[in-house]
Design a protein around this nucleic acid. Structure first.
Length: 635
RNA sequence: GCCGGCAUAGCUCAGAUGGUAGAGCAACUGACUUGUAAUCAGUAGGUCCGCAGUUCGACUCCGCGUGCCGGCACCA
């Protein structure tokens, strides 16, 4: 006689075991119709699940986040069924839910085309119309292996073989299609109405590049049509922010074939770059960093000693001269140790913070290049903190505060924190790794930050915290980082004299806030959709005249602003004011200063911002005051 | 690097089935002296990514290369 407690706290008693679906039907036909899955005692299950004992129950519909996930998961199965109908030779592999949708990986000689996505989509709609019930069935591991082998699905069989013996597995069957799956799923294919297949891509079996390349079809699925429409609209909006498009339109930078992955910065882009760099310089000084500069090209032996050549030798650009092999530096840390090593250091010198806007080159795989986000030539806001073991905690903590301050100033508050721990290929003892990982985890916890662990993703010399931001399409890019390194200083003979009069090896913290300037520019451009805040805008103001009569007056205002250090342009062209405004708006110039006869008579300018609002009429001194205030917000 | 796609004027893009290219915007010239997102007219502009090949003939078809795009893998 199960007593079922519903989400609203009400209780219902039933005389026999009852399915979640029947409870929904008992509550109301509308709910039964909307029901996709159920949550029994907090566990997400199929609607067909039979409830035999007292339990709490909530019915999951497309209004619940979990309901949407069930839809996406079931839509992945639906797509696999359609693919198998159209391409019987194809083998299925896995089809998980991802943010905003799902994918399914197929093994197939035949390569799917974009047009075939249409056909697959049509077939999916047919299956929806057939209203096939989706049935769960429990099966033993051995029977499952046999079943899929008989179907010729060797990938599924392989997946099951990797599941520990004795575990019960579940199958889901809809019509002729059977898939191994944990579930839960919608009760019937008729529930899957709002989806769109997005694109085809290659993906390695089990994510390993030594394995076969499968074909992945990405799709999106939603609870109702409006949500799908909104999603597709958001995608379009996002594409409009793409830094590669804006960079071209605003003439900030370009790439060309002769220098793949390396940026040609145009005046506007370089202005932005310089604004960011000068801002960082001020901030670093306030935090007791000392800026240095080290060679671009350094003998390969140094990279061998540091351990980089072993792991990354092939990814370094190298040059040869008089029989010596040099590497174009891929990073700055070994060079900073060389500076540390000059002269005897005392514990009193620690922590010693060295910073460099170090230009680095890495021969990234061609397929990895992506606009400004992933390049071969870049500059880091790099820094290395040499300290004692006891200073790690406070240095990391201070660094996180520093990073937050900087991100805040640039308008970033949505930060993803991740801790990458020891990889298989590494240097240093396990004790040292234990200590380093704990130090970083504790620093994050002390700040009350929510973080995620990435096991095995650390650098070869130490664990790291990664601070990531998202691009316009939701792709996550690492910008900031702090890494604990107990190994490299020893490899490169760094020592200091401790309180005890003996030599000790310092700990080195590798750290960056922006990461690479290039990537950060990309993120900045997308974050602001090109409408950079005043203090960063390549062109802060354009002075424009209505007719020739105001030319001298306009030029004077232009000169005053320029002499005060603002980035200004003058537009005296014989064009209509609407034409000039349109052009400078598209160029994303922060303020437009219009001068006509009215302004000339009153000794003012009319200020218009990028949103198209008239800010007001300003005299010369009022204007300077206004701009100074805008500028000083961040500097 | 791997799988797939793409590469035409400064930019955005048209150009079935092979017959050596076209629009809009931008540029240039001229007229217009203009009040808050496009004034009008005219002119010029192309090794159709590169290299080979098939063909009487290739922007178009085949091959190789390069770059870019979407993923995957990689990311000190």
């Amino acid at each position: 006689m199960p007593i079922i407690t519903l989400a609203d706290g009400s209780k219902r008693e039933f005389s026999n075991a009852i399915s979640a679906y029947d409870v929904a039907a008992d509550i109301g036909a509308g709910l039964a119709n909307a029901a996709l899955a159920a949550k029994v005692n907090g566990e997400l299950v199929d609607l067909s699940t039979s409830i035999t004992n007292d339990a709490t129950l909530s019915i999951i519909t497309s209004r619940d986040e979990e309901g949407i996930e069930v839809i996406r998961h079931s839509t992945a199965h639906l797509m696999a069924q359609a693919v198998k109908r159209l391409f019987p030779k194809v083998q299925v592999t896995i089809g998980p839910v991802i943010e905003n949708g799902f994918y399914y990986d197929f093994s197939s000689e035949h390569h799917f085309t974009e047009e075939e996505l249409e056909k697959i989509s049509e077939e999916m709609k047919k299956i929806v119309k057939q209203q096939l019930p989706v049935e769960r069935q429990v099966i033993s591991r051995n029977d499952a292996i046999k079943l899929f082998e008989n179907m010729g699905e060797k990938y599924k069989a392989e997946i099951i073989r990797d599941i520990p013996e004795g575990e019960t597995l579940s199958l889901y069957k809809q019509g002729e299609f059977i898939d191994l799956c944990r579930g839960p799923h919608v009760p019937n294919t008729s529930k899957l109405k709002v989806f769109k297949l997005m694109n085809v891509a290659g993906a390695y079996w089990r994510g390993n590049s030594d394995n076969e390349m499968l074909q992945r079809i990405y799709g999106t699925a939603w609870g109702d049509k409006k949500d799908l429409k909104d999603y597709l609209f958001r995608l379009e909006e996002a594409e409009r922010r793409d830094h590669r498009k804006l960079g071209k339109r605003m003439s900030l930078f370009h790439f060309q074939e002769e220098a793949p992955g390396m940026v040609f910065w145009h005046p506007g882009g370089w202005s932005l770059y310089q604004s960011v760099q000068q801002y960082m310089r001020k901030k670093l000084t306030l935090r007791d960093y000392h800026e240095v500069n080290t060679p671009q090209i350094v003998d390969f032996t140094l990279w061998q000693r540091s351990g980089h050549a072993d792991k990354f030798g092939d990814d370094m650009f190298s040059v040869e001269s008089e029989g010596r092999k040099f590497a174009v530096k891929p990073m700055n840390c070994p060079c900073h140790i060389q500076i540390f090593n000059q002269g005897l250091k005392s514990y009193r010198d620690l922590p010693l913070r060295l910073a460099e806007y170090g230009s680095c080159h890495r021969n990234e795989p061609s397929g990895a290049l992506h606009g400004l986000m992933r390049v071969r030539g870049f500059v880091q806001d790099d820094g290395h903190i040499f300290c004692t073991e006891g200073q790690i905690q406070s240095e990391v903590s201070e660094f996180i505060d520093f990073l937050h301050e900087i991100y805040q100033d640039f308008g970033f508050t949505d930060i993803i924190y991740r801790l990458s721990t020891r990889p298989e290929n590494r240097v240093g003892s396990d004790e040292i790794w234990d200590k380093s990982e704990q130090a970083l985890a504790q620093a994050l916890d002390n700040k009350g930050l929510e973080w995620q662990e990435l096991p095995g993703e650390g650098a070869f010399y130490g664990p790291k915290i990664e601070f990531s931001l998202k691009d316009c399409l939701g792709r996550v890019w690492q910008c900031g980082t702090i890494q604990v390194d107990f190994s490299m200083p020893a490899r490169l003979d760094a020592t200091y004299i401790g309180e005890d009069g003996n030599k000790h090896v310092p700990v080195m913290l590798h750290r960056a806030i922006l990461g690479s300037f290039e990537r950060f520019m990309g993120i900045l451009i997308e974050h602001h959709a090109g409408n950079l805040p005043f203090w960063l805008a390549p062109v802060q103001a354009v002075v424009m005249s209505i007719t020739d009569a105001q030319a001298a007056y306009a030029e004077n205002i232009y000169n005053v602003l320029q002499n005060k250090g603002f980035r200004v342009k003058l537009d005296l062209r014989n064009e209509k004011i609407g034409y000039k405004i349109r052009e400078h708006t598209l160029e994303k110039c922060s303020y437009m200063l219009v001068v006509g006869n009215k302004e000339m008579e009153n000794g003012t300018v009319t200020l218009r911002n990028l949103k198209g609002e008239t800010v007001g009429n300003f005299t010369e001194s009022e204007l300077l005051e206004f701009f100074r205030k805008e500028q000083s917000e961040k500097n």
